[in-house]
Amino acid sequence: MSKALFRVCAAAFIASLILGLSTSANAQETITLRLSSFVPAKHFMNTRVLEPWIETVEKRSAGKLKIKLYPGSTLGKPQAQYDMAARGVADITWGLLGYTPGRFPLATVMELPFLSPSAEIGSRMAQRLYDKGYLKSEFKDVKLLALGMPPNMDLHVNGKLVKTLEDLKGMKIRTPSAMMGKIIKMWGGVPVPLPAPEIYLSLETGLIDGVFLDPLTLMGVRANEVTQYHTRIGVSAPVFFFAMNQKTWDRLPPEIQKVIDEFSGEYWGADIGGVIADKASLGVLKKLEQAGHAVYSLPHEELQRWQDAAAPAFDEWVKRMEAKGLPGNAVLQEAFRFKTQLVNAR
């Protein structure tokens, strides 16, 4: 063998070794995913829901998966979170369905007034509707990881304590969804749609008189600093989603997919999000009282007036869905069935 040929063969052999080592090293590389959160870093959703979920999934992956959290709308606005997951701007996102009105029509059944008794039960109801197949077509653009709901919303204002329906008349109230906007109108208020990050300044400047928020989000966006009066109403809540980019999901090794699936669904939405949120919200109300805020619970008779005034929302919702060719009544009846099952199981 000539020296020239020997050198060529030797170089090829060394290159194959290097390539083999490189391939082996790449196979051992940790997969890193980006998770987008539109709320501030210290918000309950980040510290008590997303971060514990990340820790659990990373641990169960035995170091093969890392998830980096990007809070505070770093990767995109609140209204863009679903599309960010669909397009791959982020690998995983969470967001409120109410920020894109009309896009998830059947899922809004869970936003009907007083339908969800708590964050835990509401989250289970929403997830089971999806698992039963009623909502799957609405999330076909992504790999849906879970649906969930926060604790029910109360009314928080900075000018006066609202004790009756008449007190709400003419007040400008921030709404998180089209459904809640309709309910506010039924109660005589003026709905103002705003994403959560704009609540503080809008209250401070008087653009709005009050907000419907769950206690945890109230604290998370610091709206407690610009409201003094809190009326306990418990009027359900917006539905939120956890979604992954479908191509990202398809590229994951089966063992990583298995880990993520194991800790998604009701585990993420209800067992982590719902159970913890329901307990934490009670603590928030105590803190508000200790800080000298007025926290008022509507008497049963007055609360019934609010419920009666909002009751037409159910028939209106069914009619809107049926007019679109969607099984509105079937979905609503299934939601009632899940609610009865879950409440009776307590």
Rank of each mutant, 00 (worst) to 15 (best):
P40Q: 07
E334P: 02
A311M: 11
M153I: 12
K136S: 09
Y82C: 06
T231D: 07
A107M: 12
L17Y: 08
S16K: 04
G88W: 04
S16N: 05
E58H: 02
Q333P: 03
M244A: 13
D209Y: 10
F6T: 09
T227R: 03
L298C: 03
E301H: 13
R128K: 13
I31M: 00
L96Y: 11
T32K: 12
I92C: 07
V259E: 06
L33P: 01
F336M: 14
R60E: 15
G76C: 08
I173M: 14
T47V: 15
L5P: 03
L96E: 13
F241Q: 06
G159L: 04
A323D: 12
Q333S: 12
L194N: 05
P299I: 03
V190L: 15
K140M: 05
N245D: 11
L201E: 11
N152Q: 07
D308W: 08
G122W: 13
A310K: 02
F241R: 07
D83V: 08
S37F: 07
D141Y: 05
S24M: 10
F104L: 02
L112R: 05
L75E: 01
I18H: 05
G133I: 13
W249L: 05
L33H: 03
Y296K: 05
F263E: 04
E302F: 02
L288H: 05
G181Y: 12
A107R: 07
P117E: 07
L332E: 01
P117D: 06
G265D: 06
N344S: 15
S2I: 06
L216T: 10
E255W: 02
L19N: 02
K163H: 09
V284E: 02
M149I: 12
Q79S: 12
S116D: 15
M84S: 04
C9V: 15
P150M: 14
A62K: 13
L298E: 09
G159D: 07
H156T: 12
F44P: 00
V142W: 00
C9G: 10
I121C: 04
P215H: 08
A330L: 10
R320G: 06
M84A: 04
R232E: 15
Q307G: 10
M186A: 12
E225C: 07
V39H: 00
G234H: 00
E166L: 15
A309F: 04
L5M: 13
L96I: 14
N245E: 04
P327G: 11
L218V: 00
L155K: 01
L69M: 14
A10G: 01
Y134E: 11
V259L: 03
D250P: 02
D250S: 10
P105R: 08
H43T: 00
G76Q: 04
A277P: 07
I31K: 00
L218P: 00
P78T: 11
I14M: 10
Q246P: 03
